[in-house]
Write a protein that binds this DNA or RNA. Structure first.
Lengths: 251, 251
DNA sequence: AAAAATTAGTTTAAATTTCACACGAATTGC
DNA sequence: GCAATTCGTGTGAAATTTAAACTAATTTTT
């Protein structure tokens, strides 16, 4: 499971040494491209946006943080490969996952030509803690990450920007929170992702007017101040709501 | 140049019969994935949104319309491959091109496992006419296209939706128009892409307020009505304009 | 038990943006 | 010169966004 990087190196060396000869130039050439999937798995903890990473064991990037990825098998859909990685690494099912972009520069992997298809996932960190615990896996703060293996920092930046935009158009944020959450938590989440302060009253009004929150009747406990109401997210209502928006030409 | 589909079939058959044996299960498996790039090239002509297509010569989809694509070579960036296809097919340089999504379902190509990375391009149809003329190549109306080869209709739909959204956030439309254009033409373009009527005065106000149009001082000629002013697009200004927009949470 | 600190939650007013809408001017074709 | 067509412009109503002041609930401190 943790082999993906190693396998990739093997793959590259093998391809070089064996020099697979098929008699068909194009095939030989073509065959040397590896396809992988990388997952940028976001979480939200301690009021910070985090991303699930693993230490790289490839010499060149030894010890640096790397996204979770693997090669795509010839008999699995790319979407499925992404989902497989997500499940293997988090032990979680039924999570948000969406393709973001493919990175295909020639030199991006030092050992072989590898094109990678990148997915973003948003998960609830608490649920993950109950799942598999692998001490190579780690949640890292997005805001302070500097260097990463391969082109993974660039990929992370693209995904973060993607998330910032996406979360303002679709209520994805709920995937990052517990089933029941206070409005304060929701706002903290938005502020962490967008890296900006939002007005509490307007934020509140906005979300109530969307009518996607379910009042659970419960309240926060063990908070050193007036407890806020806990809400759930109305997935049904959201899915039924067609996107009727139109025509806001808006550069 | 037109060989891509045929080569792909050959590739598949060869891979099956030769059963390349490397001694490494994963490599053997992996080797069977082909990588292609497909370009959805949009144009605007006769007040209709069009897309540049080619007749498919693969048995299964014989005569059906297909996007322009080719295999990615192991020594070229994916972005470069897309650009190469665009140049080979249109003879044009310096055109708008952007990656949209990767399609990686197992059964999407009948002859082999092929993952395709899809790009959108917007070009000026007039310029293209002056370039290469290939009578297999054809501009087709996006609005009336029904069936296409492979999963290309699905891909086109995704790209059309992508364009509709993108054009409301960024002034891409100008790539589809001549260097000098009237506001009427610009509005017709938006209406064609969005498939909606827009208010002329508000449209006009919107674009002037963005301050991205250059008044050329020239006017339309040979129109059977009062001629409109011709404008150019201020690319410099657009590129300098950072996207300062923020915080319109807006599902 | 009273005071201080902290956050929840509500209402209102101002500023801005969006949207619908009508009429005189320029040109061509007849 | 008259009909047909499109160009070009301004205004007010409605909706949305933004900013802001106050009360309420709870915990901690004194």
């Amino acid at each position: 499971m943790k082999q993906s990087a190693a396998t990739l190196s093997q793959l590259a060396e093998l391809a070089k040494t064996k020099n697979i000869n098929t008699g068909l130039e194009k095939l030989e050439d073509h065959v040397r491209i590896g396809i992988s999937v990388d997952c940028v798995i976001f979480g939200f903890d301690e009021n910070e946006l985090k991303v699930l990473l693993i230490k790289c064991d490839l010499k060149k990037y030894l010890g640096m943080w790397s996204l979770l990825g693997d090669l795509v098998s010839s008999v699995e859909d790319v979407d499925q490969a992404a989902y497989r990685i997500l499940q293997e690494r988090t032990g979680m099912d039924d999570v948000y996952l969406e393709q973001v972009r493919t990175f295909g520069q020639v030199g991006r992997h030092p050992a072989a030509r590898v094109i990678t298809i990148v997915y973003c996932s948003l998960i609830n960190v608490q649920h993950h803690k109950l799942g598999i615990s692998d001490n190579e896996l780690n949640w890292q703060k997005v805001s302070t990450l500097k260097e990463m293996a391969f082109d993974h920092k660039q990929i992370l930046d693209v995904c973060h920007a993607w998330l910032q935009k996406r979360i303002q158009e679709h209520p994805l944020g709920f995937s990052l929170l517990p089933k029941k959450f206070s409005l304060r938590e929701l706002q903290n989440l938005y502020e962490a992702i967008l890296d900006a302060k939002l007005d509490r009253r307007n934020f509140r009004k906005k979300f109530f007017s969307m009518d996607l929150l379910i009042d659970t009747g419960e309240y926060e406990t063990n908070v050193p101040h007036r407890p806020g109401k806990l809400y759930g997210f109305n997935y049904d209502k959201y899915h039924k709501k067609e996107r009727k928006k139109l025509l806001g030409i808006d550069f």
